[in-house]
Design a protein around this nucleic acid. Structure first.
Lengths: 217, 217
DNA sequence: TAGATTGTTAATCGATTAACAATC
DNA sequence: TAGATTGTTAATCGATTAACAATC
């Protein structure tokens, strides 16, 4: 166990480990080696061992990692050994799609409220949740102890919504609008942008141009 | 202009540059410096210059970059100076949400067909597109010259759908299912996973534990 | 004991940033 | 000419991978 700063790359691999460990657990596999994990997840075994070692000594030499124990540890590291409540702002198709993931997120994260800026959306239902108007955001965030906000509104509304979320006391934001949010530095923001993903994929298309095809990977 | 291999990090920044350049263009800003761009996009100006320099000399010393010229160049690099046709498989909420982005993607990428594995979905409509059954995939991909596939099916179907897409002649895949697809190495795959994003955000929550808060960033 | 596998240090690799001559 | 800004090389930083002693 060392007290180095943990890079974001490491943190983003933890949920990937967790997912596969959960699958192993379901199959009642008791133990897994960094070798196995690496092979399955296309990662270097040394990297996996190093990632985990940032947080403690979870394995046993000669044996590997106990699956249920490691699950427990990663859940603790990710702070999802307690339920984390999430609010979603933007009750459009994307918001609706994401709220379907609640089942997947049984790892103790849960979307517990949905808001929309359009007053006429208020009162409609998304899955089991009733869409609320924005003026109830702060009170609901506080009442339900909501700590993470998801933004699925059009880009021109996103900054305003982010501001309101932060004002309401949210600690982290997952932003689906294709803009760079201005936020205080104690608020963690991840932006995930479908169009960026898709446009960058086009780069890798083969085509009739004189590109050198030394794309070694 | 050098002929080094371009890293994925560089390629993923190009659409980000493009988006902001388009915004500048709309505002009829003629010229932009790496300084300006960096400030707006939270990137180091040297990095922006270096990224662009991989592909050519697009700027003018003492002046900066001509906005419309740079847009043209980046569009060419990303290969979206021609229309790229995209197929979406999985007509659920997420598929529907993504098909709404067609308007955004006016940069010459377009979702031109939607498929679903469930026979009863066939014939229903998503935006202006009629959902087709899977057995029409290959013929449609060929007929419409579709080159990229988006997978928005449940995780247990994703590998199968990927196989079919590849068989049909697709060159790249954007995968929204939380699994690691096995694909031939000439097929480019980007996986984007909502649950990974959300779980990794939880790590950054402040809480009552003895975490050292040297999270310097 | 022999074989397997961890945790960790050292080596490598790659990406970001700084610096600056060239030049508009 | 003076000021601004590029393109590019060199320096720095950080992340990944290899190697191996410790040990189950």
């Amino acid at each position: 166990m060392k007290s180095e700063k943990i890079s974001e790359a490491v943190v983003r691999r933890l949920p990937v480990y967790l997912r596969y460990l959960n699958a192993l657990n379901k199959r009642e596999v008791a133990t897994v080696s960094s070798q196995d994990l690496g092979h399955r997840l296309n990662l270097n075994p040394a990297q996996i061992r190093k990632d985990l070692a940032y947080f403690g000594e979870f394995g046993r030499k000669g044996i590997g990692y106990d699956v249920t124990y490691l699950i427990e540890k990663i859940r603790h590291i990710l702070k999802i050994d307690q339920q984390i409540n999430v609010v979603l702002v933007g009750a459009g198709n994307l918001g609706q799609a994401l709220s379907n993931y609640n089942a997947y997120l049984k790892d103790n994260m849960k979307i517990v409220a949905v808001f929309d800026a359009l007053p006429e959306k208020a009162g409609t239902s998304i899955n089991t949740l009733v869409v609320q108007p924005m003026d109830q955001l702060e009170s609901t965030v506080k009442k339900k102890n909501i700590r993470i906000g998801i933004i699925t509104v059009p880009d021109f509304e996103a900054q305003q919504v982010a501001d309101k979320l932060i004002e309401s006391g949210i600690e982290a934001i997952l932003n689906f609008a294709p803009i760079i949010l201005k936020t205080p530095e104690n608020i963690r923001v991840h932006t995930t942008d479908f169009t960026t993903d898709l446009l960058s994929l086009a780069y890798y298309l083969e085509d009739g141009r004189e590109e050198t095809e030394d794309d070694s990977e």
